[in-house]
Amino acid sequence: MLHVVISAKDDRNRTVTNIGDFFRASILTREEEGGEQTGRKKEIGGSGAVGIITDHQNGTYTATFRLLWEGEVTIRIQLVHPRQAIDFIERNIRRYPIDLVAFQKRYVVGHGTVDTQCNVDPVIFKNTSAVWRDPLVNRRRCVRGLATQQISGFYRNGVWNSLVCKNRHFSSQAGWQQCLKGKTMHFMGDSTIRQWWEHLVRILKMTETHIPEAKHSTGPLLAQDPVHNITVNFRIHGPPLRAEWTRTFHIKYVVNAIDEIEGGPSDVVGLTIWAHFTSYPVEVYKQRMEAVRAAIERLLHRSPETLVVIKSANTRMGNSLISGYWLAYKLDLMMREMFRGIDVVLVDAWEMTNAQHWHGDAIHPAEDIVVQELEFLCSFICPL
C-alpha cells in the first residue's frame, strides 16, 4: 500500500480548511514504443489504477493506492472541485431542477416535422418520497412481533428515528402521562434498566415508596402516580451481582418474579440481563436466559395481552477481560437469538448507543439516550 498525504493550499500558500473538496487520484505507469532507431516514441496503453481519497476534514487528505505491478509509477492527484464549487453546483441544481438542459421531441407527420419542448414532469417534485426516498415514509405502527432490521434506525439532529416502526417523541409531561395512564411497569434486570425506572420517575414526577432496608442499586423500588394510575417497579435480576451489600430477602431470581406476575393489558414487563454476566462463559448466560424465556412463555400463555419488552445490552468500555465491549456484544447476540420468534418487543439499545457519537461509551448511557429508549418503549404501549 502507498499512502500520499495531500494538503490543500490557496494562492498564498495557506492551508485551506474546506471540508469536502473533491479530489481524484490515480496511479499509473506509461508504456512507450519506438526508440533510438526511429528517434520517435509513441505512448501505448499503460498500467493504471485508482486511489481512495480520505478527507481528514482539516484541509488535508490521504490518497491510498495498492501497488499492483512492478516498475516506476506516476501519482496523479486532481482537484476536481473545491467545496465552494460543489456547493454552487448543488444550489444550482436545486434552483433549476429540470431547466438546465432543454430537450426537444420531433414528430414526423407525413413529409413534415413538428418539434416541441419536453422534459421531466415537474409534478414528481411534489412527492418528496419519490425524489428523496425518505426511509421514514410508510413505516408501520409499533406492535409486538416486528422483526428488528440489521440497521434498525438512525439519529437525525440527535433524535432517534426507528426504521422498524413509527416511534413516538413526547414534547411534554402530559404526553407521557396520557400514554402510560393506567399502566403497571415491571422493570427487571441490571442497572441499565433501572435507568428506565429512574427517568420515568423524574419525567412523571412520581412519588417513591420507601421500602425498608432496600438499596437503590438493587431494589426493590416502587413509585406511583395516583392521579394517572401509573405504577413503576424495579428489582435486580438475582445473582450473580456486582453491587453493594444487599439483604438477601430483597433479592429474587427474575424467573420467579416473572412467574408471580398475573399479567394483563395494563401490564408491561421490561427485562435486560447482561452486565453482570460478562465475566462468565456464555454457557452460564445461556442457561439463565433459557429459563427466562420459558418464564416469559408461561406469562404470555396465561395472559397473552401482557406486553413484554426486552432491552438489549448497550455499548460500554471497561476491562476487556471481564466487562468490555466484545464480551457485552457476545451476550447481546445470544440474547437476540434466544428471543427470536417469541412475541416480545426488542428495544435495540445496542444500536442506539452505537450510532450516537456525542457521548462516549459508558455502562450507563446519558440521559438523552435513555429518554429515547423510553420513547421507543412507549411507541408499543400507545402506538401512533
Rank of each mutant, 00 (worst) to 15 (best):
I273D: 01
N319G: 08
Q224N: 15
R316Q: 15
I230M: 09
F103M: 13
T15V: 07
W274H: 02
I310C: 00
K9V: 10
V123S: 15
L333Q: 04
L374K: 15
W245P: 00
T184E: 15
I363C: 13
S217C: 08
F376G: 02
M185K: 04
F249M: 09
C378R: 11
I6T: 12
I98L: 05
V254G: 11
F249K: 09
M338F: 03
E283R: 00
G112H: 14
L146W: 15
E36S: 06
N314L: 12
Q177P: 01
R194T: 03
R95C: 00
G46W: 03
D55E: 11
T184M: 09
R247W: 12
E262P: 06
E297K: 14
A294H: 01
K311L: 03
I98E: 05
R30N: 15
P240A: 00
L146G: 02
G51P: 02
I381T: 14
R91W: 03
S47Q: 07
R194S: 00
K330F: 12
A362T: 15
I77C: 01
A313W: 12
H216V: 10
G270I: 13
Q104K: 07
A85K: 09
D55K: 07
H169P: 07
A49L: 04
R293K: 03
R40Y: 15
Q173S: 08
D134V: 14
K105E: 07
R139V: 14
E283V: 05
I203W: 01
T148N: 12
V292E: 06
Y325M: 06
Q150D: 07
I86R: 12
D55P: 09
V232K: 10
D10F: 13
F249E: 03
R140M: 14
Q195G: 07
T62L: 03
L2V: 13
S312K: 00
Y96I: 03
A223G: 06
S152Y: 10
I77L: 08
I6F: 04
S7H: 06
C382V: 10
Q178V: 12
C118A: 07
T278W: 02
N167E: 11
V227W: 12
R202T: 13
V371P: 07
I381E: 07
C378D: 14
K183W: 01
F23Y: 08
K41I: 09
P383M: 13
A275H: 06
S171C: 10
S266P: 01
A243Y: 11
R298P: 02
F376R: 00
L346P: 04
S129E: 11
L200H: 05
K311N: 02
Q195C: 01
G45Y: 06
A355C: 09
T315G: 02
L377R: 07
G39L: 14
